[in-house]
Design a protein around this nucleic acid. Structure first.
Length: 730
RNA sequence: GGAGCUAUAGCUCAGCUGGUUAGAGCGUUUCAUUGACAUUGAAAAGGUCAGUGGUUCGAGUCCACUUAGCUCCACCA
């Protein structure tokens, strides 16, 4: 063995060796118990960051452990087209490099650009996944927007439509005038901004607003029914008021959505551009009028200000109100929260628009269910399904406290808007011809049909991921063998976006849970507990780190000292420490290799089973180390089985370095004979196996380099150590 | 407004179902060694486990309250 471990020479070589040997594919022995996972597909918007590395490492540890345990493991890789995120990225580049918008190129040409970008990203990402050492089955790689997944999406849409769960209707949506699309509530980022807050005279009332540009059409004035200050005004009463562009007739509305303590307790409403106002207007069947168009410009209702962008119009309106003496007071220090599309950066302007929606509260008849507690023919809602899957214990969530958060989210869930006015994504499988509409997996026969222009929310397709990757809606063998999947491991930040939607889709479409266990990890932060971001310049690039210290050092550093679900402070120091550990491991290997030569005992065989090793113990310390090693095996196994990977890693680190190397080797090195050599060598091989899921490259390299016959060609498929002989039928 | 998390050594964190003297990494101090490994070894200093009260034979661990920090959800015109 070389004096130092050189990860650069080893990693690529070993990964190719593993892949070529077919170890990433499920074992052909179908009698083995299956263990399956899908990789949360990274967005094809660029490159992988350290959070992705963490996710890959945790999942790879689980997969490698179960593979060695004798399960028939499958880990399906893939990438996500991330509709709006990818499109917005390409639009940004397009504008920067050519000063063009997507409308300049047209749908077809623009999509070609996006696809080219996505392909490049995809290639980078795949390469990065390999570098981390992830033992995924590349033959089953999927893309959320490929042909097979598109068929799954269309099938799902049609099924939901036929069950009356998808409808098209006028709703108030979050409109991004910059990207020209709706975005979901979850895609909004709130930003605080200090703006002037205007108190305006509105007839006998004073109303308050931060957005005077929406106020042109306001003809309803709303107050709380119990507000003693305004009891003399009756619901439905009409009054004449002087307003921005002259006199209007206002109607008094009483509604308890009004907060009596806020402002003056009176407000005028703009139902077309505000969710709360929209809801009030819906309750009292009031008129709704659009004031701002989809480019964020004022409509003719604004009189001579029509056509102005709202940002420019605001000061002009305030000026006019001032002239008319309608401005009572201005609070300059008001903190207003504005909604921003966090994918594209546009300021959200609520609008009423026709959208495709999923009704989460509508009862439908369950066609097929293999879930406990829900039978075929039961009447349920999607919300109930989502809740039931977890409350019945058919899906476990680790850490447990996220269960409460999950329920809380479901309770507050509104209908899910699934249409997007962007081009990159799954086109909605609906066709129109005059007044006629066709909903189906394929275009209808005949001339003149035109497909809906909108595409689907990206989460609609990723919601199908656990089974669309296995071939659904075809009844494939993979689907039978590997669904429900065993574990879904992902960051807690997408519990709602993604995990909840997978539960919705799987319980509804398949009548079974998508996975039995949800395992959530935290955010990787920098050494100062700051979120990593490009603008802060504190981003740690996983590939750079793995290049410098070795992938194994990065892997174990990522999971070493943090409990599941907690955020992880990451520093280079930590990785460096783990590189030292890798070096220690390497040198134990060198020592063992060297001593075998000293003993000129090339026929000394390693003992496979630890319980047979006691026959070779000649000293008290030999017995002790065997006992300790047994405890290690039990401890590591138990910790991994309970998802305490950090505990398992800590046990291994302590044992290998401080018990095995510092204590036992120091003791045995002066009295080494053929018998104690067997103990030394065999125990080390056990440790390599236990460490292999955590540090696959160096353990495999040492294993391959150590002298002696190998009955097993790779650590990847070596049996996981146990402390006692198992009955043969187990 | 609603919900959740965190508080343990100088720093970053472990501590699973309550059970001897509370652990690790990094950092600090002292000593040793070119021996598989200076990417080393031996040792040391450093903690009223945020505070108060409770349950218990026994609490870092369970319960209540207080304080401080963080996060998520909803959202006020």
């Amino acid at each position: 063995m070389d004096k130092a471990y050189n990860h650069k020479d080893v990693e690529e070589k070993l990964y190719n060796f593993w892949e070529k040997s077919g170890y990433f594919k499920p074992d052909s022995d179908t009698k083995k118990q299956p263990y399956s996972m899908v990789l949360p597909p990274p967005n094809v918007t660029g490159t992988l960051h350290i959070g992705h590395a963490l996710m890959l490492v945790i999942q790879d540890i689980l997969i490698r452990y179960h593979r060695m345990k004798g399960f028939r493991t499958l880990w399906v890789p893939g990438t996500d087209h991330a509709a709006i995120a990818t499109q917005s990225k390409v639009e940004g580049i397009l504008y920067k490099e050519e000063e063009k918008t997507r409308f300049d190129l047209g749908r077809e040409e623009f999509l070609k650009r996006v696809e080219a970008f996505a392909q490049t990203s995809h290639d980078t990402i795949v390469n990065q996944i390999r570098r981390i050492g992830a033992s995924v089955d590349w033959e089953r790689e999927a893309y959320t927007l490929d042909t097979e997944r598109n068929f799954a999406v269309r099938t799902a849409f049609v099924r939901m439509f036929q069950d009356g769960l998808i409808y098209r209707g006028d709703t108030i949506v979050n409109w991004d005038p910059k990207m020209k699309t709706t975005v979901s509530d979850d895609e909004i980022e709130w930003k605080e901004e200090q703006v002037p807050f205007y108190y305006l005279q509105y007839g006998p009332f004073v109303i308050a607003t931060a957005r005077p540009e929406t106020k042109f059409g306001d003809k309803y004035v709303v107050m709380h029914p119990k507000d003693s200050r305004y009891l003399k005004y009756k619901h439905g009463e009409k009054i004449e008021v002087e307003w921005i562009n002259g006199k209007v007739t206002a109607t008094i509305i009483k509604d308890d959505a009004v907060d009596m303590k806020f402002g003056t307790g009176v407000m005028t409403i703009t139902p077309w551009h505000d969710r709360t106002d929209f809801e009030i207007a819906t309750r009292h069947t009031l008129d709704m009028e659009q004031v701002i168009d989809f480019n964020a410009q004022l409509l003719p209702i604004a009189g001579d200000l029509a056509g102005q962008h709202i940002k420019k119009a605001r000061p002009l309106i305030v000026e006019r109100l001032r002239e008319k003496g309608l401005v009572v007071k201005v609070d300059e220090k008001y903190v207003h929260r504005i909604a921003i599309n966090y994918r594209g950066g546009g300021v959200i302007e609520p609008q009423i628009k026709k959208q495709w929606m999923v009704n989460v509260n509508k009862s439908f008849t369950m066609q097929h269910s293999s879930m406990q507690g829900i039978k075929d023919g039961d009447s349920v809602t999607l919300k109930q399904l989502m809740k039931h899957a977890v409350s019945s214990g058919q899906i476990a969530i680790t850490p447990q406290h996220f269960i409460k958060t999950y329920y809380h989210w479901i309770d507050n869930l509104r209908d899910w808007c699934i249409s997007r006015q962007i081009w990159y994504g799954h086109r909605i499988p609906v066709w129109y011809k005059g007044e006629k509409m066709h909903v189906g997996t394929d275009a209808p026969e005949g001339e003149g049909w035109e497909q809906d222009q909108d595409t689907l929310d990206t989460w609609f397709s990723s919601g199908l991921w656990t089974f669309s990757t296995l071939g659904w809606p075809k009844e494939t063998k993979d689907l039978r063998d590997f669904h429900p999947t065993s574990v879904l491991e992902t960051g807690y930040d997408i519990l709602f976006f993604w995990v909840a939607r997978m539960i919705l889709m799987s319980t509804y479409l398949l009548g079974e849970v998508p996975f039995r266990q949800v395992l959530l990890h935290g955010l990787v932060r920098d050494a100062n507990k700051q979120k990593m971001s490009k603008s802060k310049g504190n981003v740690i690039d996983p590939l750079e780190i793995s290049e410098k210290y070795g992938t194994d050092a990065l892997r174990i550093a990522l999971i070493y000292s943090t409990a599941a679900g907690n955020d992880i402070p990451m520093s280079e120091d930590k990785v460096r420490g783990m590189k030292f550990f890798a070096n220690k491991l390497w040198n134990i290997g060198r020592f063992i290799e060297m001593k075998r030569g000293d003993l000129s005992a090339d026929d000394v065989q390693a003992v496979e089973n630890i319980w047979e090793l006691r026959n070779f113990a000649t000293h008290e310390t030999d017995k002790e180390i065997i006992e300790e090693a047994e405890k290690l095996i039990e401890g590591v196994t138990e910790h991994i089985a309970s998802f305490r990977l950090h505990e398992a890693a800590q046990l291994l680190y302590q044992f290998v370095w401080h018990t095995f190397a510092d204590t036992y080797i120091e003791d045995v090195k002066t009295r080494l004979d053929a018998k104690s050599y067997v103990v030394l060598h065999s125990l080390f091989l056990q440790q390599l196996r236990l460490l292999h899921p955590f540090m696959p490259f160096i353990t495999e390299e040492i294993y391959q380099t150590l002298p002696g016959k190998k009955s097993i060609p790779s650590l990847m498929i070596a049996p996981w150590p146990t402390v006692a002989e198992l009955p043969h039928n187990a």
